[in-house]
């Protein structure tokens, strides 16, 4: 299953809820303002690093660049572009969007 999160973890509880409900081996894609959840040194970094032990986390690099957050992604987060986004959706049977 693929989960997408498009809201900032400092503004909404979407990321938290997503992490709580994602099963081992699931894929999580952070897009739009959701990319702030993929960064080093923030108040949520620890929680995300912990989650990386059981799920794969991806972040849409064009959204990271747009917000000036290049080189800040946590180790272990896979950076992808829009075609990677398409591939992820195609690889998984279902998509849950945590809006």
């Amino acid at each position: 299953m693929l989960h997408t999160v498009n809201k900032s973890p400092f503004d909404r509880n979407s990321l938290e809820s997503c992490l709580k409900h994602a099963k081992k081996g699931a894929a999580i894609l952070l897009i739009e303002d959701g990319i702030y959840g993929a960064l080093k040194g923030t108040a949520v970094s620890k929680k995300v690093e912990e989650a990386l032990k059981k799920v794969s986390i991806y972040a849409l690099y064009p959204d990271i660049e747009a917000r000036g957050m290049q080189d800040r992604a946590l180790d272990g987060i896979k950076l992808i572009d829009y075609s990677g986004f398409v591939d992820l959706v195609a690889e998984h049977n279902t998509v849950q969007s945590w809006l």
């Binding site: 900032s8 400092f10 503004d11 303002d33 702030y36 690099y61 064009p62 959204d63 660049e65 747009a66 917000r67 000036g68 957050m69 290049q70 572009d81």
Partner: peptide, 23 residues
């Protein structure tokens, strides 16, 4: 305040999302 600080972050490059960079 809060996520507003991201508005004035350095290095914004918006070409990839096809939106004008107003920073």
């Amino acid at each position: 305040l809060e996520d507003g600080v991201y508005q004035i972050a350095k290095g914004q490059a918006t070409k990839g999302i096809d939106v004008k960079n107003f920073s």
